[in-house]
Structures are given as structure tokens and as C-alpha cells.
Write a protein that binds this DNA or RNA. Structure first.
Lengths: 214, 214
DNA sequence: AATTACAAAGTGGTCTGACCACTCATAGTT
DNA sequence: AACTATGAGTGGTCAGACCACTTTGTAATT
């Protein structure tokens, strides 16, 4: 039960143990972990070893630690990970172009998925959607809705992640022309006309890129 | 220059410093970092603090350490990060289905990108591709090539990451029928016929999914 | 001269004990 | 009742000590 001693990376073992502990004790997001000193005693290792494991998890944003208070399980759908990915993983992806391209791939796929679904384009949600376009609406809000409806949570997560790297042409409100394109897009989405839907999507993209040169 | 003292997370600062050091000293993948003791002295912090930073980067798979030898910058397109993501980040993405769907989205987009490119489908690389199909060839190898050609490094990275979660229907060799579909796919890719290319892609996917029920 | 054997230096891995800075609950004061 | 001071508990950091392991240089052997 205690593969403590020599040879291989104790602190990695502690990371495992911590994951187990979090699971076993059913510690919820925001919940408190035992103190470093207590963990050291319970796991029969030095405090520094426990700390190395904890610091690793902290850098990942899995836990959060507050001096004088303790260590807490954090909601890791936060920022840490994004920053890390940006500095290390994405470091050599020099052009923001890839980010935009990949986002558009996900967006288009959502549209296509919806079009090909027998169920989705029969629902009346699309009318509610069209109503939304009457009001002030953010670009990112409506495209996010589309991805949500396409029912691919993973794609949504990735899209969300990428959005934070993008130059944020998504944060602005739609103008009249954009809304016009979207109305046509939604209309075709409703009846499952993939070709036309994608076509209007591209048209919309051209409108939003009016400023950019890349 | 030295925001050492009190208040905020020294070890996070060290992580930054290390990143800078790696960049400044132009340490390549596989290259050696200064020893922990030397780093401690150069950065004017205790060795344990340096270690906390190093251990974090190790858990991320950014560095690799060998006892008695030293610390090395590692090729982080390896495994660590994937395992972590699988246990923490992707924990609530229950269905493997999303993984497959998202991968296919990226794959299809690569195909579409290539078709729409004026340059790509005029090159003769496609003949070499067709030759490859004569030999034994892994499914993942050929689809990876496609994504590489589409020239979106970010998409490639994400695809690579996802592949490691997939049930690996990619690791097997192509059978005769699959090769047939791919030949047709490539032929259309060469002339930029998006419709047909995607169509044959879908056909291929049907062939590979013969075992699955989902 | 070449090979082997051994010792030393250097490195990461871990533990211990000691402070510091901070938070919080509580006892004590007003 | 409201406020204040104290102390216990917690994370943050450091220094020093071993240990296990690898590499390297040197001395002994062949």
C-alpha cells in the first residue's frame, strides 16, 4: 500500500494519492484539503514532498491555496490552464490566424451537425433565436448558442478556450448587415439546408473581417 | 528586477524566470538546464523553492529530470499533459463520442481547406500520397499528413491531443476497401473537389466504424 | 599503452527543523 | 455589546543535512 521508498519519484506518487484523497473524501469544488503538515503525516512523507505535489496541482489550477487559510479544491475551468497553454503549448503558433481558423472549423461543424440532425431543425427554438436578433446581441453569444445546440461539449470547451486567445472580434455587437446574414443563416439552419447555411456563415465572416488584412 | 520578497507566490515567479532563462539561453529540446543548486543561487532563492517550480513543470511534462544527471527540457508533445487532462479537465466529457466528433470536425476542415486552396491541389505531392497507399499504411498516419498539409499547426496539436483519448481505431492498418475510398478521396483532393472529397471521407468513416455501435 | 577499478564530484530526491506572514477564532478588555 | 489583543493554525521560504545515482577523472593493474 505504501510504495514509498527508493527509486521512483515520490512526489508523483503523492499527486496520485491526493487525487485519491480528493475522491475518497468527496471533497467538492471550493472544499478544503487537509493541511500540508497533516498530509505529510498521513502519507508518511516530508512536508516538502507534499508541497512539491501541491505546487504542481496549483500551477495546473486544480487547487488554490491561501496563506493562513489552507488549500482548497478549485474550479479549474478557470484561467490558469489557459495561461499555461498560451505560454508553452501555443508558443510556437505564431500567427493568430490558426486560432481563428480552428475556431471557424468548430463553428462550421456545429452548423453542419445541426443541419444533418433530424431532430434539431424541427424545433421551434429557432424562432426564439430570430427574435433575439431584433435586440442588441453579441457575436460570441449567438455563435456559442449554436455550438451548445450542436451538443458537443468538448468542442464547446475547446472553442471557449480558443476564444480567449483570439483578438476578440467577438465581443462587439452585431450591426445591421451581420444580423441580416444571420437571419438567413438561421432560416436555412431551421430547414437543414447545409449548403446555404454555410454560405451565409462565410458571408458573415467576411463582414466581421472587414477591418483585418491577414 | 527582483520582485522577490513578501506577499505573492515566489514559486510562480520562478516559473516565469525559468521560462525566460530557457528562452534567453536558447535551450533546445533535450538540452540541459542549470542544476537546482545553481538556479537557487542565480535566482537568489532557496533550493526548495526552485524545486517546487521545477516539479510543477515536470508534472506538465515540460521538463524531464534524471537523478544524478540533471534537468532537461523535454518534448512536451509527450504524455504527461494528456494524462492530466484526461483525469481532470475532461472528466465530465463522459462520452467518447464527443472526442470522435471533434476529431472528425478537424479532419474534415483540413480537407476543405486543402480543396479551397489555390496552391495545394496543384502540387505533385498527391501522387506520392497515392503511392503510399500501395504499401501498408496506418490510418492515423495518412490523416495526420492531411492535417499537416492543411497548414494549421494548432489544429494539428489539438487533433494529436484528442487522438490519445480516442479508442484508437486509428492504430490499425488500412484494408483494401479503405484504401479504395482514400484513393478516390485523394483524387478529388488533388483537383479541389470539396463535395466529392468529403463524401469519400464519410464513406471511409463508415468503413472504420463497422465494429462500433455508438 | 591500454584497460580496469575505484574514488570523488556533481546531481536530483527527500527529510527535518526553523522562521516568517497571514488568517481566524477566541478570550479579554472596554 | 462592541472592540481589541492574543495565540493557534496555515501556507511560504530557507538552510542544512543525508541518500541514491551518474559521470568523470585518476590511479592501479594488466
Amino acid at each position: 500500500m505504501i510504495p514509498n521508498n527508493n527509486s521512483r519519484k515520490m512526489f508523483l506518487e503523492i499527486v496520485k494519492q491526493l487525487r485519491k484523497l480528493i475522491h475518497d473524501e468527496n471533497i467538492a469544488v471550493g472544499g478544503k484539503l487537509p493541511s500540508e503538515r497533516e498530509l505529510a503525516e498521513r502519507l508518511q512523507v516530508g512536508r516538502s514532498t507534499v508541497r512539491e505535489a501541491l505546487r504542481s496541482l496549483e500551477l495546473l489550477g486544480i487547487i488554490e491555496t491561501r496563506r493562513g487559510e489552507g488549500t482548497f479544491l478549485s474550479d479549474f475551468r478557470k484561467h490558469q490552464l489557459v495561461e499555461l497553454l498560451s505560454t508553452f503549448i501555443l508558443q510556437d503558433v505564431k500567427s493568430k490566424k490558426d486560432v481563428h481558423t480552428t475556431m471557424q472549423a468548430l463553428e462550421k461543424d456545429a452548423i453542419r451537425t445541426i443541419c444533418m440532425s433530424d431532430v434539431l431543425h424541427k424545433q421551434s427554438i429557432w424562432d426564439a433565436f430570430l427574435d433575439k436578433l431584433q435586440e442588441e446581441v453579441l457575436q460570441e453569444d449567438i455563435i456559442r448558442e449554436i455550438i451548445i445546440i450542436s451538443n458537443n461539449r468538448l468542442a464547446l470547451k475547446i472553442w471557449f478556450l480558443l476564444k480567449q486567445f483570439a483578438d476578440e472580434p467577438y465581443r462587439s455587437f452585431m450591426n445591421v448587415e451581420e444580423k441580416k446574414a444571420w437571419k438567413l443563416l438561421l432560416t436555412n439552419l431551421k430547414i437543414g439546408n447545409e449548403q446555404q447555411a454555410i454560405s451565409y456563415y462565410n458571408e458573415w465572416k467576411l463582414l466581421t473581417n472587414r477591418g483585418e488584412i491577414k
